[in-house]
């Protein structure tokens, strides 16, 4: 299984990296840590759950992306990971 990265490190975007892992690990590095860290963390967990992901290593490098962008990047990453693994 491969590592998949989606998005960019431009302002208002985020780079989401997902790779197979034996448990669910989430790393979030965000420029709006004080104001939105917990919010982003909840959003990432919720989105993973919607897609039935219970095990993966997920890294979100956030440059001030709004929820829709974080969700879209993560969704694309999950789809690509699944497509890659047939």
């Amino acid at each position: 299984m491969k590592t998949v990265s989606v998005g960019t490190l431009e302002s208002s975007d985020c780079l989401v990296t997902i790779k197979p892992h034996e448990s669910l690990e989430i790393e979030i590095d965000t420029v709006v840590h004080d104001a939105f860290y917990e919010h982003i963390s909840d959003l990432v967990r919720k989105t993973l759950k919607e897609h039935g992901i219970t095990k993966a290593y997920v890294i979100v490098q956030d440059k001030g992306a709004l929820d829709y962008a974080i969700k879209a990047r993560l969704t694309t990453a999950i789809k690509r990971m699944r497509d890659d693994n047939g």
Binding site: V32, D34, A35, F36, E38, H39, L66, D67
Partner: peptide
């Protein structure tokens, strides 16, 4: 509506 409500610290 765009950003969400920031946590006030």
């Amino acid at each position: 509506a765009l950003s969400g409500v920031p946590k006030h610290s």
